[in-house]
Amino acid sequence: MGANPPVAAAKRRSYAIASTVLLLAVVAMTACASLPAISPAASPGASTDPFELTVVHSNDTWGYLDPCG
């Protein structure tokens, strides 16, 4: 004996919804894989524009406190 037509229609709707969800999930995963990875160095609100870093440096100061000749 065949399925009650309303039940069959409900089953077809369920399969359609499930398939659509699965398709969307596959598309999302593919899109995410092709996006550049977020740098671990970036934090929410952090700028990733070019920036200027000033490095003030000394070496071999030998603990001298005073000026010398």
Binding site: L53, T54, V55, V56, H57, S58, N59, D60, T61, W62, G63
Partner: peptide, 9 residues
């Protein structure tokens, strides 16, 4: 600005 020393301080 970073202030660093490269040794023997």
């Amino acid at each position: 600005v970073l202030v660093v020393d490269a040794g023997d301080s």
